[in-house]
C-alpha cells in the first residue's frame, strides 16, 4: 500500500478519501450527509470511497437509528489514524527534501 520511495499512502492519493480521513481525524463520529455536505460530492462517489476506506480497515461504520430513519456514522480506526499520520509525516518529509 505504501510507496516504498516516498512513504506516501496510495489509499490517500484520492482527494475524497483524504478529505474523509481529514474530517474523521478531528470529529469523533460523522454521518453520511455531513460528510457529503462538507466534501461536496455525490452519494455514489462518496459511498464508493467509504467502502474502500472500510476495506482497508481505516474507518469503522456504525449503523444507528434516529427515530425510524437510519443514521450511519463513520469513525476512524486506530489503523486509520496511524496510516493518516504516517501519510502526513511523509508529506512533510517530502517538503523538507525539496527544500
Amino acid at each position: 500500500m505504501k510507496n516504498p520511495i516516498t512513504g506516501l499512502n496510495k489509499v490517500f492519493d484520492n482527494r475524497i478519501r483524504l478529505g474523509v480521513m481529514s474530517i474523521l481525524m478531528v470529529n469523533e463520529q460523522v454521518n453520511f450527509n455531513d460528510l457529503k455536505q462538507m466534501l461536496e460530492v455525490t452519494d455514489g462517489n462518496l459511498a464508493t470511497h467509504l467502502v474502500n476506506l472500510e476495506d482497508n480497515g481505516y474507518i469503522k461504520i456504525h449503523k444507528g437509528f434516529i427515530g425510524r430513519k437510519t443514521n450511519t456514522t463513520y469513525a476512524v480506526t486506530k489503523a486509520g489514524e496511524k496510516a493518516f499520520t504516517d501519510h502526513i509525516a511523509a508529506l512533510e518529509n517530502m517538503i523538507k527534501g525539496v527544500k
Binding site: 482527494r15 483524504l18 478529505g19 481529514s22 474530517i23 478531528v26 460523522v30 466534501l39 502526513i88
Partner: peptide, 11 residues
C-alpha cells in the same frame, strides 16, 4: 497539506 488543514478546520 494546506487542504488537509483547511478541511480539518472547517469540519
Amino acid at each position: 497539506i494546506s487542504d488537509i488543514k483547511r478541511i480539518m478546520e472547517r469540519s
